[in-house]
Amino acid sequence: MDLPFGIDFGGTGIKGAPVDLALGDFAGDRQKIKTPKPATPKAVAKVFRELVGRFPASSAPVGVTVPGIVHGGVVWSAANIDAAWVGTDADSLFTAALQRDVHVVNDADAAGLAEVEYGAAKGRNGLVIVTTLGTGIGSAMVHDGVLVPNSELGHLEIGGRVAEKWASNVFREQDGLSWKEWAKRLTTYYRTLERLFSPDLIVVGGGVSKESDQFLPLIAIETEIVPAALQNRAGIVGAALVASRA
């Protein structure tokens, strides 16, 4: 059985695996290749070919996460990747490179869809906001299972500061914050999301979510807030889901 393939394109590594959508998990060992420097679209396409080539030949679609805004398969922003991505029709480029149907999605959106379909927000109705706390703050908004793409809620300005330049995990480390001190910043951030969107559930992902017991109980908000369940599998699983639905 041909299974969709998910690729998670990050700043340091490009990871991929076939995905069993009935289970919401990998159907083979995840493979990883270092992100090329410079990470231009053509250089990354070459890595994608190598990554997909490590698995048996398939005609199933491929989903790819990109850390940027994606509209109709075209990348509109490139804050943490090569500037050459801006304006690139990534769907067409990768479809030609891999000779398979390829669909590109914002990385946080992919993770959000995976958490709603298989993870911490499975079976939940209403508005779910999934945030990823890392170098920045990624976000996904999913209402009754339908994605509102490219929400970019980490770019909200709060008190004259861009949220992710103050409350992301990298700034916790950079500023030497204790968990309690960081939780105060996160409380300010998540209260803003509450006020603007009235979510039914907030899911917190990113690598630091593995230590969620250190800071989530200290975030003082009214909305239910829980750690992500899929952790580093979410991007690949969500990308494959997007490709399959497309």
Rank of each mutant, 00 (worst) to 15 (best):
P4H: 04
P4W: 04
G11R: 12
G16H: 05
A17K: 00
P18T: 06
L21D: 04
G28M: 04
G28P: 00
D29K: 08
K32W: 01
I33A: 05
A43L: 00
V44W: 03
E50G: 07
E50N: 08
A60I: 01
G63W: 00
P67Y: 02
G68Y: 07
G68K: 12
G73S: 07
V74N: 02
S77H: 09
A78H: 01
N80K: 04
W85A: 11
D89S: 13
A90Y: 05
D91A: 12
L93S: 06
A97K: 00
L98Q: 03
Q99L: 11
Q99C: 08
Q99I: 07
V102M: 02
V104F: 10
V104E: 07
A114H: 01
V116W: 12
V116C: 11
V116Q: 12
V116Y: 10
G119W: 05
G119A: 10
R124K: 15
N125I: 08
I129W: 12
T135M: 08
G138I: 14
V142C: 00
L147C: 04
L147R: 01
P149F: 04
N150D: 14
R161N: 11
V162E: 15
N169L: 01
F171Y: 15
F171P: 12
S178A: 11
W179V: 07
K180F: 13
K180A: 15
W182H: 10
L186M: 14
Y189H: 07
E194W: 03
R195T: 14
L196H: 10
L196F: 13
D200S: 14
L201G: 03
L201V: 06
V203A: 10
V203W: 10
G207E: 00
V208C: 07
S212P: 07
D213E: 15
F215I: 10
L218R: 01
A220L: 06
E222I: 02
E224Q: 15
I225F: 03
A228D: 04
Q231P: 08
Q231F: 14
V237F: 03
A240K: 00
V242Y: 09
